[in-house]
Computed example of a mutant assay.
Amino acid sequence: MKQNKNLGCRILRRSSCCLLLLALFSTSVCALESDGDQPIIIDSNTATYDDVKAISTYTGNVISIQGSIRVNSDKLVVYFIDGEADKMVFTGNLAKFKQTPHEGDPDITGEALTGEYYPKKNLLVLIGKATVWQGSGAYASDFIEYDLKTSLVKAGEKESDNKRVHVVLQPKGKEQAQGQEKKTTVKDNNK
Rank of each mutant, 00 (worst) to 15 (best):
K187L: 06
H166S: 10
R14C: 10
P171V: 06
V125R: 00
I42A: 03
D35Q: 08
T27H: 05
G156N: 06
V125W: 05
Q3D: 08
L20C: 10
V132C: 04
V62C: 02
S34Q: 13
G135C: 03
K182F: 10
V89D: 09
L22G: 03
S28E: 14
V62Y: 01
V186Y: 04
I127L: 12
L148M: 13
I42K: 00
S141A: 14
L124I: 13
V52K: 14
S56N: 02
N190M: 00
Q134W: 03
G128Y: 03
E103F: 02
Y49P: 02
T185K: 02
T131W: 07
T59L: 13
R13W: 06
D142N: 14
H166M: 09
K5T: 00
V89S: 03
E159A: 15
K129R: 12
Q178S: 11
S34K: 15
A95Q: 14
G179H: 10
F25H: 12
K163Y: 09
T184D: 11
A23P: 01
E157W: 04
Y118L: 14
D35P: 08
V71S: 05
S64N: 03
N162G: 13
R164Y: 14
S26A: 13
T150Y: 11
T27G: 07
F143K: 01
T48K: 12
N162S: 15
P39K: 07
A85R: 15
D147Y: 11
S73F: 08
L19K: 01
G110Y: 11
S56E: 11
A47L: 13
Q178D: 05
A31L: 03
L20H: 13
T150D: 11
A138T: 14
M1P: 06
F90K: 05
E33W: 02
K163E: 11
F80T: 02
A140E: 07
D107A: 11
K149H: 09
T184C: 04
G36V: 05
G110D: 06
A155P: 12
Y118P: 00
D86E: 13
M88H: 04
L123S: 01
G8K: 10
Q99C: 05
D105Y: 02
V89R: 07
D51M: 10
S160T: 04
G36L: 09
Y118V: 09
K96Y: 10
S151T: 10
K182P: 02
K154H: 11
G115R: 07
G173A: 02
I63M: 12
H102E: 15
G60D: 02
A85D: 09
